[in-house]
Structures are given as C-alpha cells and as structure tokens.
Design a binder for these strands. Structure first.
Lengths: 211, 211, 211, 211
DNA sequence: CATGAATGAGGCTTCATTCAT
DNA sequence: GATGAATGAAGCCTCATTCAT
C-alpha cells in the first residue's frame, strides 16, 4: 500500500508531493526571515529551487502560500508535546515545561514565527487568531488542565487555572523573550533560561501551593 | 537668493518645522497600521498631506523616515511617566503601574508599535534594539529601582530586582496581551485588566513580600 | 514499436477521433466567447475535458487550434443551406433567405464568430480572408446565382448580380446587426426581423424588378 | 490666455497635457492594431515614448486607458461632419455622404476602431454600446433627420426614416466593407466606392422617391 | 522649500508550451 | 496516445526615488 502510494504520483493531490514540500520549506524560510511583505515570490521560488510558475501550481497566490505555512507552523508548534502526566509532581513538571517553552519561543524558528504572524495579524486577523489558538492558547489549556488535576487532590489552591497557567508561562519569559524578539539580546543561554524558569516556578508555587 | 536659501535651509534644520511634523504624524499612522513594507511613500504623503517629493526633503529615504518614527515613538512611550514615588506603598504602586502598563500595550497604538517594530527587528536589528531599550527595558529599570528602594527598608525580599520587575510586568499581561496582538480577542475591558493586575500583584507580593 | 507508432499515428490522423472532437468543441466555445487572446489553453482544456498536454497532441499550438476552429466554423456556416431553388418566386425566396440570414448572424453563435474572426483579421489575415470567402462571399455567390437565374427569363433587371446580392444582404441587416454586435441592443425579435426583411425585399424589388 | 495656459504646466490636470496626448496617441495605434488583449502596456509605453509607470500616472489601468481611447475615437468619428443641409437635393447629398461614410469605415483607422470595439463588445458591453451610439447610431440619426426634412415637402415617401437611413448606409457598404474588415480585399478604390454608392443611391431613390 | 510628473526596477500572476511518465 | 507537473517568458501594476519647475 505504501509502496503503491509512492508510485502513484498524481502528486499534486497528495498533501506532500515532494514539490509541495520543497515549496513549503523554501517559503517557510523566506517568510519567517523577511515577513509576509518582505518575502517575494521570486525569492521563495529560488529558496525552494522551483520555478515561479510552479508556486502557482500548488498555491493559489502568495496569501494562500503564507497561510499554508502558518497553518503548518502552528500545527507543528502546537504539537510539541510537553509532559503533563498528572502523576508527576508539580515543581518538576513546571520546570521542565518552562524550559521547553522558553526554548521553543526563543529560538530563531520560534521567534520568527511569532514575529511574522504577529506582524501580519492586523491585516490577516484570521491567520493571527488561528496561530494564537493552536499554539499559545493550546499550551495554556494543557497546562491549565494539568494544574486542575493538582487542585482537586489539594496540592494547589487555584481559583482560575487558565489564568494561573498563562501567568506561569509569562513569568518564564521575563527578561528573556522580549530582548530576544526585539534583537536586543541574542538567544538566552541554557543557564539563564534555567535560572529564570526556576525563579518563575518559585513564584508560582509561592502563590498557588496549597498551604 | 543665496540668502533666501540659507534662510529656508534653516527652517528645515529645525527639528519641528511644521512640514516635518505633518510628515511624522502621517507616517506614524501609516507605518503603524500597515507595517514597514505595507506602507507606501505615496500613502504616507497622502496621510501627511504633503507631496511625495517633500518627504525626501526631510528624510533621506523610506528607511530613515521609519527610523525617525520609531525613534520618536520610543521616546514618547519611554516617557510615559509612572508614579514610582518610593514613598507610596508597594501594593498600590504595583496595581496602578500594572494597569497603566497593560493599557499602554493593549491599545491600538501601543499594540501597533510593538507589532511593527518587532516585525522589522530581524531586518533592522538596531531599530528593534533601540525601541526595546528605550521603552520596555527602561520601564523595567524604573520599576526595578522602585523595588530596590523597598528592599532596603525590608518591605520586600528580592534578590534580582530587574528580574522581579520584569516578572511583574509579564504577569500583568497574562491572558491579555497575546490574544490582543494576535487579534484573537479585542482589547481587554477595564475590569479584566483590573482583575489580572490584582492577581499579578498578589502573586508578586506572595513571592517577594518580606516575611 | 514503430508499427505501434504507425498505428497510433493513424488514429490521430483520423479527422474525428473522439478526443479531437472534444477539443474542437471545447475550443470553439472558449474562443468564441473570449476571442483569440482572451482564450487560454488551460480554459480550453477544461472546457474540452482533456489535459492541456493533449491539446498539443492534436494541434501544433494555440494558433493552429484556432485556425482549425475557424475553418470548421466557416465550413459549417458556409454549409447552411438556403433554399435557392430557381423555381421559387423571387419575393418568397428573398424573404425566407433574408430572415434565415439575419437569424444566423444575429445569434450569439453567429455574432461571436463574426466578432472573433473580424477581431483577429488584422493579425491573421489569412484566417479572416478564408472565413469571409467561405461564409459571407459564398452566400453572396449563391444568392447572385439565384438572381441570375431570374434575370434571364426577365423577372429581374440586374446589371451586377453579385452587387445586387450583397446589397440585399446588407439591407436586411439594417438597424439589426450593428446594434447587436456592439451590444447596444439584444438580439432582435422575430417580428422586427420580419419587418426589416420585408422592407429590404420591397426595396430590392423596387430597384431590380423588371418593368 | 493661451500663452498663460502653455506655461501653467500642472499638466496632469489638463485634459491634454502633452504626456497624456503622447500616451493616447501611442495607445490608440497599439490598441487599434492589436486589439485590447493583444496590446501590451509595454508596447503602448514604447509607442508613446514614455515609461510604463507613466501610463499609470494618467490612467488607472489598461482598461481605463482603452476606454479613454475608444471614447476619444468615438467622439472624433462621431464629429465627422457630413453636409446635411436640407436645402441640398437628395441625390447629391446621399452620394456625397455615402462616399464619405464608406471612406471613413474602409480606412485602416476606421476599420480598426470598428474591429477593435466590436471584438471587445462581448466583454465590455458598455464600451461597445457607447461607441455604437456615438458613431453609428448618431450618423443614422442625422441622415434620418435630413430625410425627414424631405418627406414633408413631398420629395420622399418614407414611413420609417431611421430605417431608411440605416438601409442606405448598409447598401453603401455592399461588397466593400466586409471584404475589407476581413482582410479579404484591400481598401476599395475611389472608383469602386463611387460605383457602389451610386448604385446605392439609385436603389434608395427607386424605393423612396415620391411618385 | 515644495511640488508632482516621470521613471524603471521589481512584484505578483498568467499562460503557452514541453516533457517524463 | 494521454496526462499534468513544470517551466520561464511576459503581462499588469506598484512603488521608492529623482528632478525640473
């Protein structure tokens, strides 16, 4: 079956014909580096090593290509799996999640996607909204669920778990994310991240650990 | 004739000849609405009610005009005066500052500036860096100074005041800023802001209030 | 292999392999609706329900396809059989022919062909010439022959039968054809056509009926 | 005043700034030669000896430029003044008018305009309609008025003067216009035109001269 | 200084045509 | 033969920038 599929190359209809992949990969790079307006279809074609015409075989126009990129990006970022096993203790879980989260967003790829989508959100609100929901909001929801699971048994005392989750995620970014996206500082070191996340975790527990 | 030229040159060199102001005002609006690439010099000229040629009398090119706008924007935002009178009690000061800060960034103007500058930061790192330093970092510094003043007398127990300041500012944005810039939610209501800032303040005090 | 090729070539060389027919039918519609330049090979392929590549199996290029269409169109229009039985009386024959002729050219199909061919005549004079000769000139010739047949017995007094034939055909179009092709008026009603053709016939007979 | 105007070169606003004239002249030639689709803005720019960008300073897009050309063309063709002085005798007037009319439409310029506008009429009905009304219908109307003036005194017996006028104009084209637009024959000679128009006049008078 | 006409490079997109399957 | 993916030339249009007035 798989073999058959490999050979049945009416490829455009397949979601991942190699050309389509090439284009997506080239386009992602160019869009994330230069933003929607800064990216040109010519540059994308070059980055994808296809002709300009081929772009239009797979995508209706620049906008559709961009949306496809953001969609994929959001699905990928949204699928980053954090270990929210309710059995794990809160401190360990938060620290591990915090580091992973900061890594994700303070990395050229992550930062660029956030920047690029945020930049276009005013002109393409739907694109912004979907990215937010699939990536950021989804993570908040998962963390909130984890926290909920620890409220019941009395480990934590939280009124609004979604707010608490968002708060933790925000504190983790303190002094790290903004300087990074504004290019005022390079991506933070492992050590700085650890320190900030540890501090964030202390702050969270000082606030929400059941007394 | 020469004399006349000298005279008129003199006018242009004044930082705020009325034409220059007109241009800055028109350009700010257009740049903030459409981003650097999305804004066209033609649109800016129209918004400023001057001719396109005039733009180039006052600014070398589009880039220089943009930089001037961001510069001014950053000075203005950086000059927003928060009441950090060390004599005021911490809780009141934090709550008031928190609300003012969230208002500032969750407002069409504020959001647009952050978006616009962040969007261009990869291609114009200097512009991003200066904006960050003059606006965001500066606020962190001021709040840090205020907190420092309350560490000495023993009101607060803080190891790293800059980190603490940044943390407070981040928590204040929880559930408010990101959905707003990504256009997933409209600007938050007064009441929501108050609730979130109150919660942020409790969190901060639970963590840093001297015991 | 060679034998196979010969076989398949044989198929293509048949004037009416079903694919060829499909293409001709689709292409006619698209060319007539949009004109030579307005029609795209992609649209034609879609209208013909074949792939773009197949078009080039049967026709060397867009131009050749267009010429084939006009050729066929001209043969078809040229083959419209009018009843020029010399035994019929002149008035009846003229009226019947006039109506049929006006119908033919003041009909979406007829109008489009004339429009389309006329439009391209400057750039493809041969195409224009052939269409004229096969359709319009041919009808003139047939009518002229009929008229000739009635000159001999003395029914009509005509010096130049071709001119007389052309004149009749032109008068039949008066107030009908031009407004129609220029889209200034919709296709004329049966009644209007009858009136105009009757008047044309009276005019013709007033001029050429033997006294 | 005229001198002043020559110097007051805020030219774009003037209907006939020299650049605008240049463009119209270049565009007319290219559009009339190649048709709407066949003409490219690049070719028009070259023909007008201006840059492509300049075209868009004066005209919103290709369509607007085309419409302007057809508009001007129709006004010019519509303003061709025929001598319809009611005092002149019918035969002379018709012959003179007929020749002028045939000359007009069987001349590269005239033929091209008719071809070009007719060709686009299906896709731009408004353009077709206006051209028809301003040029062809207007001439019919003028001739009809002249004929009317000769019905009253009893020179002519005409029921429907517009129909009669259109009929005369059509007969004048017999054997001349269609072969010409379809490029089946070159523009007719003076002599052929005279013969055909004379015949048309005889036909008209045989039909409508009061007995 | 202020203007706005003019430019030409470059962006997005379409399309006739080719070619490997 | 039939396909449709792929191409690159070319088309329309925008825009930052220049320059004569």
């Amino acid at each position: 079956m798989v073999a058959a599929d490999r050979h049945t190359l009416h490829v455009v209809s397949e979601e991942d014909s190699s050309k389509r992949r090439q284009i997506m990969d080239g386009a992602r790079k160019v869009f994330m580096d230069l933003g929607f307006d800064g990216a040109s279809m010519g540059e994308i074609a070059r980055a994808a090593a296809v002709s300009k015409g081929t772009l239009y075989v797979y995508f209706a126009d620049k906008c559709a290509l961009f949306e496809a990129i953001v969609e994929e990006e959001s699905l990928q970022h949204g699928q980053v799996v954090f270990n929210f096993d309710p059995a794990r203790d809160v401190e360990t879980t938060l620290k591990e999640f915090g580091r992973a989260y900061v890594h994700l967003i303070c990395r050229p790829g992550g930062g660029s996607a956030i920047r690029t989508v945020m930049a276009i959100a005013e002109r393409m609100p739907e694109v912004g909204r979907r990215y937010y929901e699939r990536v950021l909001d989804k993570s908040i929801g998962r963390l909130a669920d984890y926290l909920s699971a620890h409220v019941a048994p009395g480990d934590l005392t939280i009124d609004d778990c979604r707010l608490a989750a968002a708060q933790f995620m925000e504190v983790c970014k303190a002094t790290l994310f903004l300087p990074f996206v504004f290019q005022a500082e390079p991506a933070p070191s492992e050590e700085r991240i650890a320190n900030v996340v540890d501090s964030a975790t202390r702050m969270f527990l000082a606030t929400y650990r059941a007394k």
